[in-house]
Amino acid sequence: MVMEGLGVAKYHDALSASTWHLLRMSEYKAPNAAEKTVRYGSHQDTNLLSVVCQHQVEGLEMQTRDGEWVLVKPSPTSLVVMAGNALRAWTNGRLHAPFHRITVAGDITRYSAMLFSVPHYKVEVPDELVDDEHPLRFRPHDNNDFVRFCVSEEGGRHEDKLKAYCGV
């Protein structure tokens, strides 16, 4: 749907064939306190898309573009879908990869399931997404190299790791 909306659906099959998926289950222990405790700090995902299902205990917070942290409250039958930095780069910045974190409070442990779509190819902006109104924002890069940069000492010094790694 994203590719159709951007007019680049012709790339779907090739990208899909070179994308792998990771399902991860997470447990965030309850702090047994009324105050919120950060259990997983602020970050942007490095992958294409993340799909999150949280069960009964809230805790996913996203940062708005003006810096405010808001609690994500999906319905019990909804999933949260977030763009990661690989999709941000591939779409030439047209999609936003939100900073997010996990906080918990109270005495109930939080569980969630996350499905990550991870590119196994060179992330390169299609020519159709570069024009005078949208100049090239990110150089082509291998996503595995970008992930290694993100967890390196150098990468840790940058808030916007994608821009630091391959920004134009």
Rank of each mutant, 00 (worst) to 15 (best):
G155F: 14
R24E: 14
H120V: 09
V8N: 05
V147F: 05
F99C: 09
V8W: 00
G155Y: 11
A14C: 10
W69T: 13
G156F: 10
N143A: 10
N85I: 09
V52C: 11
Y28D: 11
R88V: 04
S112Q: 13
A34T: 10
V38E: 02
N92G: 02
P74H: 04
S42D: 14
T64I: 04
Y11S: 02
L48T: 00
G41L: 11
E68Y: 15
W20C: 05
Y28F: 05
L23K: 07
P76T: 05
P31F: 01
P140Y: 15
H21N: 11
L79G: 02
V151M: 15
T37E: 13
N32A: 11
Y111M: 09
H158G: 05
V147E: 04
N92E: 07
E159T: 08
R39C: 05
N144Q: 09
F116V: 08
E153N: 14
V70Q: 14
V80Q: 05
L162P: 10
A97Q: 03
L87I: 08
R137G: 09
G7K: 01
V8S: 00
D131P: 05
L48G: 05
L115S: 04
A9G: 15
V51W: 02
T64A: 06
G7T: 05
D127W: 00
N92Y: 02
R139Y: 11
L22E: 06
S112V: 12
M114L: 14
K10M: 01
V72D: 01
Q44Y: 06
P31N: 06
T19V: 00
V70R: 11
K161Q: 12
M82K: 11
P140V: 05
Y165D: 08
E4V: 13
P126Y: 06
P98L: 07
E68R: 13
M1R: 11
T109Q: 15
A9V: 06
K10A: 06
G59M: 01
D131M: 14
K36D: 12
Y40W: 14
V104W: 15
R94D: 03
G106L: 10
T77E: 15
M114V: 04
I102Y: 04
V147R: 04
H141E: 10
S16A: 03
L162V: 09
G41F: 06
P135M: 11
A9T: 14
S117F: 10
G67A: 12
P31S: 01
V2F: 03
G41I: 14
T19D: 01
G7E: 09
W20V: 00
A86T: 02
Q63W: 06
L115N: 04
M82D: 05
D131F: 14
A86E: 00
H12E: 14
A30M: 11
E159S: 01
R39D: 09
G7M: 04
D127H: 06
P135G: 11
A89E: 12
F146P: 12
Q63H: 13
A33E: 01
V81F: 06
G5T: 08
R101W: 15
C53T: 13
L49P: 02
L115Y: 09
R157D: 05
E27I: 14
E27A: 12
F116C: 12
A105T: 13
P119Q: 00
E128L: 07
F146A: 06
